[in-house]
Nucleic acid binder design. Structure first.
Length: 596
RNA sequence: GGCCCCGUAGUUCAAUGGAUAGAACGGAAGUUUCCUAAACUUUAGAUGCAGGUUCGAUUCCUGCCGGGGCUACCA
């Protein structure tokens, strides 16, 4: 609000002083850097061509004009080409009070119109979830919350990749070496049991390849001719032909995997409005491919395989149906996109999928466009970076993964031992304590992941446990808990947490003002995070706020102050900080404890 | 080989083309008769290299060096 007004008045200043119309969006107005005296800064370099005067003079002229037009501005200073404006303490106090009156401060009005469909998670039913999936799930859940806070109607969907050659590999290994073991008989969580056979397949397959290569085959030949691979492909054909026995085993194993996923999702705190299964979308994909073939936008090769030729668009040829008629990943993704469009007619479809699939999504959009699907242009791939280990990327087949369930266990135990060391569990019941460890452990994990720009690769070192001090989730949670404790005491002393008409202080301490200024940024932070599809914006903001609040808390007594009006103001500041921290954390899917 | 992404303190992360490149961890030194010390304060320490565009470049462009991904009738 104030920024908009500043921009308008600056425009009129330029017009009055230099007879030049400028647009607000062409002005360089920013928040003043922390160590410099000022609230907003106008960078005047770009205006010099109009003023034809030195930067200092131009800045001073504009500053002088603004002073006469805006009572909120109490003074200004000029450093080189930077015009630093200082707003009155009364302005900031009034702003805080008006914010404290809004029930949903920071959140934006509901937008009517079609929804956004957001796909995330998308597990394969041949292996359990690992740290990479955790990043995906946390990003997806948080983005949905952020988009909702921006007023969008969001439909969260999950696409379970439950068919394909990789599933057949697990099935084959189980048929050969499974001895009919079950999650119950083995004591293994369903998805972990399946994962065991996926790894086993790979091990035996590699042995076969080595054997064939010893007999003189090339690696490529060996990979194709290895009996295990031939058998897996046979299972895929049988599956697509709806072979009874194959389907029965497939159903059984998939249900184990899915039960495992549900447990993990619940623990991680993520959920979905609708779950799609690749097994029920690939046929629609096949249908689209056949249509494309009839319309002449796709081609059939001599061996019967069907292709999209995208070489004229700087991409390659892409197979859409194998020569034996079975589907590939792309086939079902075409069908899923269509189904999703038919289901919701969304304004856009966002896919939270790792950047290793950038090429896949380029192709998907181009193929859909060729098939005449106008929604192709409204597909957005939120391409997030890999989570890497110190020794490189994780590989499921080679067992070098950080398992999602194990990691959550570890976070819980670390939270527990840290909390016990600090002697903070004495007053808690067993259940309360366990809930607290869960909140803190997950808070640390989620913040650790979400504070990083989604687009960038990030590193996780299993040998160093995730921190609980400094720029971390528990730091913010601790700030929140201290606030709760303080506000309890304020209530007990008879203070209202929200604004109730009383005399306002006329001036602010610099720490008070810093907190108020940060609080005022909350709505634009939510907006920025929504436009950029970037939860890290919210995470880093939360940390800044908690940090500044802790400084305020350290230096300024809230309740131990003689002036009642000052106490009221500080209680408002504290209350608003609590509100904003809680909301920010909820946008990240992180819970906050009232005690810790 | 072709296409794409990334190089910031010892480490992990920040920085709409703007001021003296911010934090955190780790290192060094402090703060508790005072609202929770999971906090706060002080301190040392970084833009891979070379050009270019610009009043101004970590940011945009080119080349080089280094790392990663994709380039499957896997997903």
């Amino acid at each position: 609000m104030i920024e908009k007004k500043l921009l308008e008045v600056i425009c009129s200043a330029v017009e009055y002083l230099y007879q030049q119309r400028v647009l607000p969006e062409n002005l360089g107005l920013e928040k003043t850097r922390k160590e410099i005296d000022g609230d907003y800064t106008l960078v005047v370099f770009s205006l010099l061509k109009f003023s034809k005067k030195a930067p200092e003079i131009t800045a001073t002229e504009i500053g002088t004009y603004l002073m006469t037009k805006m009572p909120e501005i109490v003074r200004f200073n000029v450093i080189k080409g930077f015009l630093n404006l200082i707003l009155s303490d009364t302005f900031w106090i009034d702003l805080l009070i008006s914010e404290s009156k809004q029930p949903e401060f920071g959140f934006h009005k509901q937008i009517s119109g079609p929804p956004i469909v957001l796909e995330y998670s998308s597990p394969n039913t041949n292996k359990p979830l690992h740290l990479g999936h955790i990043r995906n799930n946390l990003l997806g859940y948080s983005l949905a919350e952020i988009l909702k806070a921006n007023g969008h109607h969001v439909i969260k969907v999950n696409l379970v990749n439950d068919r394909g050659i990789h599933i057949c590999k697990s099935m084959l290994a189980y048929m050969k070496w499974g001895n009919s073991e079950t999650p119950d008989s083995s004591g293994l969580k369903g998805d972990h049991l399946i994962g065991k056979y996926y790894v086993l397949f790979d091990k035996k397959y590699k042995e076969e390849i080595r054997g064939l290569m010893d007999k003189g085959l090339t690696e490529e030949e060996a990979e194709k001719q290895a009996p295990l691979m031939v058998e897996a492909q046979e299972i895929l054909r049988k599956w697509e032909a709806k072979d009874h026995e194959t389907l029965e085993l497939w159903r059984k194993m998939n249900s184990w995997a899915n039960e495992g996923f549900i447990t993990t999702y619940k623990r991680l705190g993520v959920n979905f409005d609708k779950i799609y299964f690749e097994s029920s979308t690939y046929l629609l994909g096949k249908k689209l491919v056949i249509e494309g073939l009839e319309n002449g936008v796709l081609i059939r090769k001599e061996d019967g395989s069907v292709w999209a030729d995208l070489r004229d668009e700087n991409l390659d040829e892409k197979v859409l149906l194998r020569s034996d008629g079975t589907s590939v990943y792309m086939t079902q993704d075409l069908g899923t996109a269509q189904l999703r469009y038919d289901d919701f007619h969304p304004s856009s479809m966002i896919y939270v999928v790792g950047n290793e699939q950038n090429y896949h999504f380029d192709v998907l959009k181009k193929v859909l466009a060729r098939l005449g699907k106008e929604y192709a242009s409204r597909i957005f791939h939120l391409s997030y970076g890999m989570v890497e280990l110190p020794e490189g990327r994780m590989k499921s087949r080679e067992g070098t993964v950080v398992d999602a369930d194990d990691l959550m266990d570890e976070m819980f135990f670390t939270a527990e031992s840290t909390t016990r060391e600090l002697g903070k569990v004495d007053e808690l019941s067993k259940e309360e304590a366990s809930q607290l460890f869960n909140t803190i452990g997950l808070g640390a994990l989620k913040y650790f992941i979400l504070k990083v720009d989604p687009k960038k690769n990030m590193l996780f070192d299993p040998r160093e446990s995730i921190d609980f001090n400094g720029n971390t989730g528990p730091f913010i949670q601790y700030t929140y808990a201290r606030i709760c404790s303080l506000l309890e005491k304020a209530k007990a002393a008879g203070f209202h947490l929200k604004y109730n008409h009383g005399a306002k202080p006329e001036s602010l301490l610099s720490r008070e003002k810093e907190v108020i200024k940060l609080l005022a940024q909350f709505p634009e932070i939510i907006k920025e995070a929504g436009v950029e599809l970037n939860p890290a914006v919210v995470a880093n903001y939360s940390y800044d706020l908690a940090k500044v609040f802790n400084q305020f808390y350290q230096e300024i007594p809230v309740l131990k102050e003689s002036d009642k009006n000052k106490i009221k103001l500080r209680v408002y500041i504290t209350f608003m900080t609590m509100d904003v921290i809680k909301k920010s954390m909820s946008l990240l899917g992180i819970e906050v404890p009232s005690k810790m």
